[in-house]
């Protein structure tokens, strides 16, 4: 007993609060909905599987961003640098070492993880606008390096002639994109399991604490910078994984993987779906990519207008993104018997 109990005890012993918190990480049925959609789409829209793979890869990329932006509150416009490093690492490995995909994914994740760790050590000393500018600067640096180092990256022409081997020596990448879709879905599923564990772990909760009040985190003895560098490195590895998947499924790497536009796009996707809730990545990436596909058919340039308008509405009226709106709607429904 570390505290003298007040003379009159006023509260009945109730463990419901403890119970509720101890159970907070348990899987809710709704969390399986994305996976029903992922599996269902394979059978219902066989002609859209290449787009489907792209969406799955963007979801993975968005999840990696959510860990640092949504949970730890690190505002970045340089996440494509890590995605791009993963994509190039996978491409170079496939061209010069082996076209075996799974080891290629490991290479992509490790390469991006190293860049994330080293850049994280430097940039996470700063906050706010400085941090934002540094993430941008690092993206420009890496993009320019890739552009100049044509002997290894192919420069402006990109990496061509990548030939992937069968996955597990069994599943060939087919022209309908079936293998690519299943491959992306399985990797995304594993990442989701990991990310879900991470955000519900004490480590993940401490990231939320850092976002909510970094002064207090210092005052309770949290090694704040170590936590931030750790999550930045993890996020970088996942972004690299997404980049590697893109290389494997498209068998091409171009400079656009490192573009500032891609960094901006992924932030938009995440905000659209809802940040700091893991599933915002699923909703945001899917809505954005499908809208882009549909609207671009009508007018390949003008569709940005609609995305812009949608973003304005979301940011002004629905800060929690699409999932935030769903939450509000559910609350209204529950209140009315």
């Amino acid at each position: 007993m570390i505290f003298k109990r007040p003379s009159s005890s006023d509260s009945a012993p109730s463990d419901s609060a403890v119970e509720q918190m101890v159970r907070s990480h348990r899987l809710r049925p709704l969390e399986l909905l994305p996976w029903i959609v992922v599996v269902g789409a394979y059978f219902v829209f066989p002609e859209y599987l290449p787009l489907g793979s792209q969406i799955l890869i963007m979801i993975l990329f968005a999840i990696s961003l959510d860990l640092i932006l949504g949970y730890a509150g690190i505002i970045t416009l340089g996440h494509s640098a890590l995605f791009g490093v993963g994509a190039y690492a996978a491409g170079i490995y496939a061209l010069h070492v082996t076209g075996e995909p799974l080891s290629g994914l490991v290479v992509a994740a490790v390469a991006a993880g190293i860049v994330g760790f080293v850049s994280g050590l430097v940039i996470l000393r700063t906050h706010g606008l400085t941090l934002l500018m540094l993430t941008l600067a690092i993206t420009f640096l890496i993009a320019e390096l890739a552009n100049k180092a044509g002997f290894i990256t192919g420069g402006a022409d990109g990496l061509q002639g990548i030939a992937m081997q069968e996955i597990f020596g069994q599943f060939r990448f087919d022209m309908f994109g079936r293998t690519a879709y299943v491959y992306s879905a399985v990797v995304l599923f594993l990442v989701w399991l990991f990310a879900r564990l991470l955000v519900h772990s004490p480590f993940g909760r401490s990231l939320t604490g850092i976002r909510e009040n970094v002064t207090r985190m210092h005052a309770i003895g949290t090694p704040v910078r170590k936590r931030l560098v750790t999550v930045y490195t993890i996020s970088a590895m996942l972004a690299g994984l997404a980049g590697g998947l893109l290389t494997h499924t498209t068998q091409f790497v171009g400079l656009s993987v490192l573009s500032f536009e891609r960094s901006g796009e992924i932030v938009i996707m995440l905000i659209l779906g809802g940040i700091g809730r893991l599933y915002g990545a699923f909703v945001g990436a899917a809505v954005y990519m499908i809208a882009q596909d549909e609207l671009a058919k009508a007018d390949p340039v003008f569709w940005y207008f609609w995305i812009g308008l949608l973003l304005v509405l979301i940011v002004m009226f629905a800060r929690g993104g699409i999932l935030g709106l769903v939450d509000q709607a559910l609350r209204l429904v529950r209140r009315k018997p």
Partner: peptide
């Protein structure tokens, strides 16, 4: 944090 569990990644906080 006091128990040194604040950095645990591979278990649920609950």
């Amino acid at each position: 944090e006091r128990h040194g569990a604040g950095g645990d990644m591979f278990r649920f906080a609950g």
